[in-house]
């Protein structure tokens, strides 16, 4: 497959930094690709700028080499790896993601990023990383950023439809991991299970997953008196704050998921039950 004819990574970064600007769309090298589950893939991309600037909760746009599918696909960064590499985990849900799943090491892919405003991980605390399915990847990056920080403890609570594809990666980065599949319950089951281990003054919830799951987690957090940060998913256009397609209602107005988020404090979000139903239909 022929890569798009944009400027190579190193030049874009060089120029942008010289001009005091953000690196734009660029071509990067795919360095790894492996299946984690049926239709779920782990892709590794070499990009020095991303590896040096990848806050937890940030995402990248990937672009198809086929101009028939020209709109960007956003993916949360799951890990920064040695050798100036980053990892994403994604499921094949359509034509664009199918094409990305066919990329092989040494092939090229166009990308933009890092994009978005990530998790606030400043406070030493007990972090509960509550993720559902393909919402887990940004929480993996959060776990990676929190690992080894003084005064920090991490507990991952992960819900899956069936296969627990992210447990191995997340387990290596957190102090404790509990996971569950749909047949046995959901992340609320797990939250209830660890409740006795929570010190309300020193615990912060980070969550990412389907909207109804995050709404339930936000409600649970409110009852338990815990602050929660939600990493929102949305159907995006540009992904960098221009087109105003991916908005969410908050107490501060209608904000862009891609630029004002994707991470929002749960108590700033206006949870509209009807909208949630429509989004997940």
């Amino acid at each position: 497959m022929k890569p798009n004819l944009f400027i190579s990574t190193s030049r874009v970064e060089e120029q942008a930094q010289e001009a005091g600007r953000l690196p734009g769309r660029r071509t990067a090298q795919v360095t790894g690709m492996e299946p984690l589950d049926r239709q779920v893939w782990r892709m590794i991309i070499r990009d020095p700028y991303l590896a040096a600037h990848a806050p937890a909760g940030a995402f990248i746009n990937l672009y198809s080499a086929d101009r028939m599918t020209m709109m960007p696909r956003p993916f949360g960064i799951s890990r920064v790896l040695e050798g100036e590499q980053i990892e994403i985990i994604f499921a094949v849900v359509g034509q664009g993601t199918y094409e990305f799943s066919r990329l092989q090491p040494d092939m090229a892919v166009d990308l933009l990023g890092p994009l978005g405003h990530g998790f606030d991980l400043e406070k030493p605390a007990h972090y509960l990383l509550v993720g559902g399915g393909l919402g887990v990847p940004p929480l993996i990056r959060a776990a990676q950023c929190l690992q080894g920080q003084s005064g920090v403890r991490t507990t991952a609570l992960l819900g899956y439809r069936d296969h627990r594809f992210a447990d191995a990666i997340m387990g290596s980065l957190t102090d404790r991991l509990e996971s569950i599949d749909n047949a046995s319950g959901d992340v609320i089951t797990l939250l209830d299970r660890v409740r006795g281990d929570i010190d309300p003054g020193r615990t912060i919830i980070l969550t990412c997953g389907p909207l109804p799951m995050m709404r339930a987690v936000a409600a649970w957090a409110r009852k338990a008196g815990l602050p929660a940060q939600c990493c929102m998913e949305s159907r995006m256009g540009c992904g960098y704050g221009t087109c105003v397609a991916c908005v969410v209602d908050t107490v501060d107005g209608r904000l862009k998921v891609c630029k004002d988020g994707p991470v929002f404090a749960a108590d700033r979000l206006i949870w509209n039950t009807d909208e949630d139903k429509k989004e997940t239909r």
Partner: peptide, 12 residues
Amino acid sequence: PTPRTAESPAGM
């Protein structure tokens, strides 16, 4: 209301 965007072949 959202969703506000969809892809078109070679467009949006």
